[in-house]
Structures are given as C-alpha cells and as structure tokens.
C-alpha cells in the first residue's frame, strides 16, 4: 500500500486515474480506516486530500456556502454562517459518531461512503446540495442525491473525487432540520433518518418543501409526496399527518440487526413530523 498526500487537485486526479480500482480517497477516514481494519478494503493507494489547498475552506458563494471536502463536523459546527443558514445539515453531520469522530468526519466523506444510513446525506438532499466533482475532464457539479447509487457505490467516474459541497442561498423564512432514530442517545448508526427543508411565505404558508429519508432503502429517498403534503399548507396538524403518512409509505426498509421493517416505516413518519415542526419553528424564527 502507498500513501499519497498531493497538494493540488490535478495531482490527486492524476494519482486516482492511475490506479482506479485500488485507489481510495482519504478525507476524515472514519469509514475508510474501519473498513481497512476489517479487511473489507485493501487499497493499493490512499490519496489523502487534506493537504490540497482549499479543502478546509468554507466560503460564501452566490448567497450560499461552499464547504471544502476536508471540512470536519467540528469545523462546520463552529461556522456561524452555515449554522444559521442550514442548521439541519450541520446537525446531521454533527450527529455522526462521537466528539472524536467529529474531529475528522466530513460531508463529502459521508456522501462518498455511500452508506444508506449516512446521516448527513438526507439533510443535504433535502437542502438541494450540490457536490463539485473534480476528474480527468475537469470539474462538474452533481446533485447530492445522484452521488450514491447503491450501498457502497457512487456515480463517480474513474479518477474523480468530490472537492466540495455547495449549499444554496436561502430566502427569508426558510430553514431545515434533521432527526434520526437510534437506540441509544449517541454513537449509533441511524435506524431511520429524516431531513426536512422548508420555505415559508410571510403569512407562514409553506411555499416549498423537500423531505428526504435515510436508512429505509438502498439509498437516500427524496419523498415527493411528503413535499407535496406540506407545500401550500400552514404546516398544521393535518399537513403533518399527511407528511408522516407519505414518509411511512415511501420508506422501503429491510429487517436487520438495527430495526424491523414495521418499526422503520412507522418511525420514518414520526421523525418526519418532528423534523418538520423543528424546521417550521426555525423558519418562523421561533427556535
């Protein structure tokens, strides 16, 4: 095995392109090192992207925020601008693992690990986040929901890696929230996760909503019916009830060591309702 810590995007792309199958990108490493230890990954080359200029930066861009691929959860949580605009995305990343893991784990890494239970991904999908991908043919932007394709698999091509995540501009009276269910209070993988992103008009009516579920399918699910249930409503009980039903309906989980199908479908609705209330209160400036 070889360890490379390139200083530029170009040099990282060139190393990645040279050994496509056996080459792994190292951002926070909180998944990769665990897989290596378990013998599930045996990379020929590890490309540590943390020495590349800009990877640790959070910058304002077109009213939104661009978050470098090496920005860890603790750094994101300390950034006032992102926390104000996208509290749901921040809390989703911050829920991953321990304080120690927060010192390493990244949005880009969580996305590219392509676990169905990734916490930050439903929040990013609800946020309409866009991943910037560098590769042999230059850079391209991809909607976050199109990056993971199956458990452990992404749509990234040969020599490509995610260099940043873009969270778009926010109008007034907009906010988001992410909740997950775990058996303990910390340290577990999501049994169900739900991100809700809302925009309200001046009288409190929901003008736009995006709702995404994690851990209830092979990849994150953007629930159109849930968004429809909220849009145009005052986010009253009836709308929240429709939201919960739509999420329970859309969830297509499996039985495994972390939960049952019936439990996950039910809790998907419960979390969606709770997350929507938090996002609503935030958007109203009440939380």
């Amino acid at each position: 095995m070889r360890y490379e810590a390139p200083q530029t995007v170009e040099s990282a792309v060139s190393i990645l392109s040279a050994t496509p199958a056996g080459c792994h990108v190292l951002a926070g490493g909180t998944d990769l090192l665990v897989r290596m230890r378990a013998g599930m990954s045996e990379p020929e080359v590890i490309v540590d992207i943390k020495r590349i200029a800009g990877m640790h930066e959070i910058s304002a861009e077109e009213g939104g925020w661009r978050i470098g691929a090496a920005v860890c959860g603790a750094e994101l949580g300390e950034h006032e601008g992102v926390c104000a605009a996208w509290p749901g995305v921040v809390e989703a990343l911050e829920l991953i693992g321990s304080t120690q893991v927060q010192g390493r784990a990244t949005l880009a890494g969580n996305l590219c690990n392509a676990s169905p239970a990734a916490d930050s991904v439903p929040a990013m999908v609800a946020a309409g986040a866009v991943a910037r991908v560098a590769g042999p043919d230059g850079t391209r932007d991809v909607a976050v929901q199109d990056v993971p394709t199956d458990p452990g698999k992404t749509s990234l091509g040969r020599g490509e890696f995610v260099t940043s995540i873009f969270l778009p501009a926010r109008p007034e009276r907009a906010s988001d929230a992410y909740l997950r269910f775990i058996p303990r209070t910390e340290m577990d993988i999501a049994v169900v996760g739900c991100g809700v992103n809302l925009e309200l008009d001046a009288d409190g009516t929901c003008t736009q909503a995006r709702v995404a579920l994690g851990a209830v399918g092979p990849k994150v699910i953007l629930v159109e019916d849930a968004a429809a249930a909220l849009a145009g409503s005052a986010l009253d009980d009836a709308a929240l009830e429709r939201l919960a039903a739509a999420c329970s309906q859309a969830a297509s989980p499996i039985d495994d060591k972390r939960g049952t199908v019936a439990f996950r479908k039910h809790v998907a609705g419960v979390l969606a309702r709770r997350a929507a209330i938090i996002a609503r209160d935030r958007a109203r400036g009440e939380a």
């Binding site: 926070g28 490493g29 909180t30 090192l33 860890c72 603790a74 120690q100």
Partner: peptide
C-alpha cells in the same frame, strides 16, 4: 483519544502518515 492541532480525535482512526 488524542488531540491533533487541538482537535480531539481517535488515534485509531488516523494514519500515522497523516
């Protein structure tokens, strides 16, 4: 647990090379 540049991390989740 150790700190790296003041940031708390698990030293088992970081390569020595880093």
């Amino acid at each position: 647990s150790v700190t790296v540049d003041g940031r708390l991390v698990c030293s088992c989740l970081m390569l020595g090379a880093e």
